[in-house]
Amino acid sequence: KMTIRVKGKELARRIAKEMKDRNLKVEIHEHGDEVILEIE
Rank of each mutant, 00 (worst) to 15 (best):
D21N: 12
I4A: 01
T3N: 04
T3D: 02
G8I: 07
D21A: 13
K17Y: 04
I28L: 10
N23T: 03
K17Q: 13
K17D: 08
M19C: 10
I39W: 10
K7S: 09
M2L: 13
K25S: 10
L24Y: 14
M2S: 06
R13N: 13
I39S: 00
R13Y: 15
E10I: 05
I4P: 00
T3I: 14
K25Y: 09
M19A: 08
H29Q: 08
V6F: 06
H29G: 03
R5T: 10
K1M: 09
N23K: 09
A16V: 12
E10Y: 08
R14D: 04
K17F: 04
D21S: 12
E40Y: 15
A16L: 12
R22M: 11
D21F: 07
R22K: 10
I28C: 06
V6P: 00
N23F: 09
E10R: 09
R14S: 06
M19E: 00
E18P: 00
A16M: 11
E40V: 12
I28G: 02
I39C: 04
E10N: 07
K17G: 05
R14K: 12
H31K: 10
G32K: 05
I15Q: 00
R13H: 14
E34H: 13
G32D: 10
E10W: 10
H29D: 03
R13V: 11
D21Y: 07
K9G: 06
A12W: 03
D33T: 06
M19N: 02
M19K: 02
L11V: 09
K1L: 07
K1E: 03
D33W: 07
D33C: 10
V35S: 05
K1H: 10
I4H: 02
E38P: 00
V6W: 02
T3Q: 08
E27Q: 13
K25G: 04
V26Y: 05
M2Q: 10
I28P: 01
K20D: 03
N23L: 07
M19Q: 02
T3S: 07
R5D: 02
E38M: 14
V26P: 00
I39K: 00
G32C: 13
I15G: 00
G8E: 07
E27K: 13
R14A: 11
R22S: 05
I39N: 01
V6D: 02
I39T: 02
E40M: 13
R22D: 02
I36D: 03
L24E: 02
K17A: 12
M19R: 01
K1W: 10
E30P: 04
K20G: 08
A12S: 02
M2R: 12
D33F: 05
E18T: 12
L24S: 02
R5H: 10
K7V: 10
E27M: 14
M2D: 03
E18W: 15
I4G: 01
G8Y: 10
D21L: 12
A12V: 03
M19V: 03
V6S: 01
D21I: 08
K20A: 12
H29K: 11
R5S: 07
V35G: 02
L37P: 00
I15C: 05
K20T: 14
N23S: 06
K7W: 11
I4L: 10
E27R: 11
H29M: 10
E30D: 11
I15W: 04
H31T: 10
K1R: 11
E18F: 15
E10S: 07
L37C: 01
K17I: 06
M19F: 14
V6N: 02
E38F: 14
E18N: 10
K1C: 12
E34A: 06
T3V: 14
A12M: 02
L11Y: 07
G32T: 03
H31Y: 14
E34C: 14
L11W: 04
T3A: 04
M19S: 01
E34T: 12
R5F: 10
I36M: 05
H31R: 11
G8F: 08
H29S: 09
K9E: 07
R14E: 08
H31P: 02
R13M: 15
D21E: 13
K20V: 10
R13F: 14
E40F: 15
T3G: 02
A16E: 09
K7G: 04
L24R: 04
I15N: 01
R14I: 10
I36C: 05
L11A: 09
D33G: 08
V35M: 11
L37E: 00
N23M: 07
G32Y: 06
I15A: 01
K25A: 07
V26L: 04
H29R: 12
N23Q: 08
E38Y: 15
E34D: 11
K20S: 12
G32H: 05
R5K: 11
E18I: 15
A12D: 00
R22G: 03
V35Y: 15
E34Y: 15
T3M: 11
L11H: 06
K25V: 09
G32E: 09
H31W: 13
V26N: 00
E18L: 15
V35F: 15
M19I: 05
I36R: 04
I36A: 02
G32N: 08
R22P: 01
A12N: 00
I15T: 02
I4N: 02
L11P: 03
M19W: 08
K17H: 06
K20F: 09
I39D: 00
D33E: 11
K20M: 15
K17M: 09
K1D: 03
A16W: 09
A16C: 12
H29W: 13
A16H: 04
K25I: 11
K9T: 10
E30M: 12
I4R: 01
D33Y: 05
H31C: 13
G8T: 13
D21M: 12
E10K: 09
L24G: 02
G32P: 05
M2T: 11
H29A: 05
D21V: 06
